[in-house]
Write a protein that binds this DNA or RNA. Structure first.
Lengths: 194, 194
DNA sequence: CCTACCGATCGGTAGG
DNA sequence: CCTACCGATCGGTAGG
């Protein structure tokens, strides 16, 4: 099956690229670096991908889709805003934990997308953030949350989620659900003892 | 005064570089980009700086020093852990707000430092984070904070501080002190109404 | 997947 | 601060 072989090899290229992009950044990673990591010549990469940027596009949009899908499942549910926030956070962390490297690239390297991809990406991201913001605003209107600055609240949450690929070790003692519960707990209940 | 003129021109180069590094990233910013932004030829940059990386070094270590100094002022104070955390956060935000662009570069581009600068930088960063962590641990031991996962707590705080240069508008309605108080309040008291 | 190669651009230097 | 340039490396193509 030629098709399946090509697909799997292409994915192998994308995964290896993802690791290099995370480590060194997109711009500082050359196609020769990538080829060397795969044990082939740089020119051979172009049998599997059209361009360097195509790899970044594949990574960024695949992750964006996964994060969007995860959040959508929570929005319809008939539950409290605290619970909705908790599930949104846990869902995000699950997606992230399954693709830690791609998540880091998604977060830090998307600015190297060219137009119109960059614009599309940023629209998806602002949409994602706004949906979390709506949950927080809903909680405030319902009297469940304090009247905090919603931009600060959502940015604090989003920052925390974004930075996790840099320090979270999924093989450690704390699993994604537990991490999500603890983050949600901390943001909702605060650090202070009652 | 030749000395003063050189210094001021060098700082102008560093500031312009800082803006480009923030926008496009260190690797994707060429010396020709920088020269063009300053209205001179690329070769002329080397009258003011020794190398591209020297600019990054100057930026990163200057900001690191400022953040360290800001935190040091809080650690000696004889105040509650909540208050210590609050002042640590507010201090960080003040430093950041005064040099928003350099703060963004400090955060996102330090990985392009070569050795031994990279190692020194990372040691300073881990030291900075650990000092915030100590405040949180102190608060837990004193019964002032809940027994949360301190790594998650400090990373959430640190992420939030790091991401601020990307969204905070210091010319907006919320000033640095107010932003610090709100972030500290949110982390300490939580979103939930009591 | 390789050899052979392209034009463009990179950070930086010499010498004024 | 400029002109003139350097060797190295970049992403990518032709042709097998």
């Amino acid at each position: 099956m030629v098709g399946a072989e090509n697909l799997s090899r292409k994915e192998q290229v994308i995964r290896t690229a993802s690791e290099l992009f995370k480590q060194k950044g997109y711009s500082a990673t050359s196609m020769r670096d990538l080829a060397q990591a795969l044990g082939i010549e740089a020119a051979s990469l172009y049998s599997h991908i059209k361009s360097k940027e195509e790899i970044l596009q594949a990574l960024c949009f695949e992750m964006a889709k996964r994060f969007q899908r995860s959040l959508r499942e929570v929005e319809g549910a008939d539950i409290s805003y605290s619970e909705r926030l908790r599930r949104g956070i846990t869902g995000h962390i699950h997606v992230m934990a399954k693709e830690l490297t791609a998540s880091a690239v998604f977060m830090n390297e998307h600015r190297h997308l060219s137009q119109p991809y960059l614009r599309d990406f940023l629209l998806m991201r602002i949409n994602y953030i706004n949906r979390f913001k709506k949950i927080i605003e809903g909680g405030i209107k319902a009297g469940e949350f304090k009247a905090v600055d919603t931009k600060l609240a959502v940015m604090t949450l989003f920052s925390s989620l974004n930075w996790m690929p840099h320090w979270y070790d999924p093989s450690g003692i704390i699993d994604p659900s537990e991490l999500g519960n603890q983050l949600a707990g901390m943001l909702i209940e605060g650090l202070k003892t009652k």
